[in-house]
Amino acid sequence: MSHPDLVADVAALDSRELARLEMEIADRYMGGLPWGSIAWGFGNLVFWLSLWPLTLSGLLPLWAAFPLACISVSLGYLPSHEAQHYIIARPGERLFWLNELLGHLSTIPLLLPYRVARLTHYEHHIHTNDPELDPDIGTRAANGWDFIRRSIAGRQPGARAAASYGATLQRLATPEAGRAVRDALIYQLVFLAVLFGMAWTGHALEAALIWWLPRHVAQTYIGFYLSWAPHHPANETGRYSNTRAFRSHLGNILTMGMQYHIVHHLHPRIPLMRTPAAYWALRPILAARGCDLERL
């Protein structure tokens, strides 16, 4: 919890002093190697991959594999998210290869190429809640049920939201964006080849229940907690107003730490597992800035 002295102190600070204090506190939570996220990313991929031989050999029934696959595919995004922000290592550092490896591998079950994820996520940070430029603006919805309805509608072949990442890469028009488009094409073709190949060799149900449907479930779950909930109502674009803190009945772990997502938007290089502690340390400053901290 926030130190009472800090709560009293920040009220007397002007904007510049608040910014300095905010950076000073945030700095304490940056740095170091997030081993938890690294183990999570690689371990989760191995877990998901193991579901294939386990079900195909009959060791694991499909009814049990399906919920496990839904959880695993949903867990695939956040380790890559740490890599997208170079939290494991920055370009030129000794462990940069590990950063990139984690980024590329952990989102394979989600079928989200690392380059696409990184470039579009940076655009989301720069243009949060901008109706034209935020690639995640399609998750804006009146309430949770409206989000689920829109999320499913947004994945239909003719939906505008389905093309938002492609449109963002096209707008960026950089060589890296070109490589991201190529990656997305390869991912899609490999995904379809696996689905079609398994379907025509008598394993359509395995493909559907370990990859195809879990990916849809994960996209909805991730979109809900990583995008809709922390940005709702997604009308503000200011640094201290474009993201909120919220309290969920599911708690911190089942919301994948997103109750504290406001800390990530303000200081993206703070590792995920330290955002709760950073939030409580920064809370008086965020309150002084007028952030929406709801009941958290």
């Binding site: 072949p157 899609q188 379809l192 689905l195 079609f196 379907a199 025509w200 008598g202 359509a204 149900l205 493909a207 559907a208 195809w212």
Partner: peptide, 21 residues
């Protein structure tokens, strides 16, 4: 190919999937 994907997906994946079900 991608323009025709819904039809290809219906025939290439959903067809055998419904058959298995």
């Amino acid at each position: 190919v991608f323009q025709a994907m819904p039809l290809l997906f219906g025939l290439g994946f959903l067809g055998p999937l419904f058959s298995e079900i």
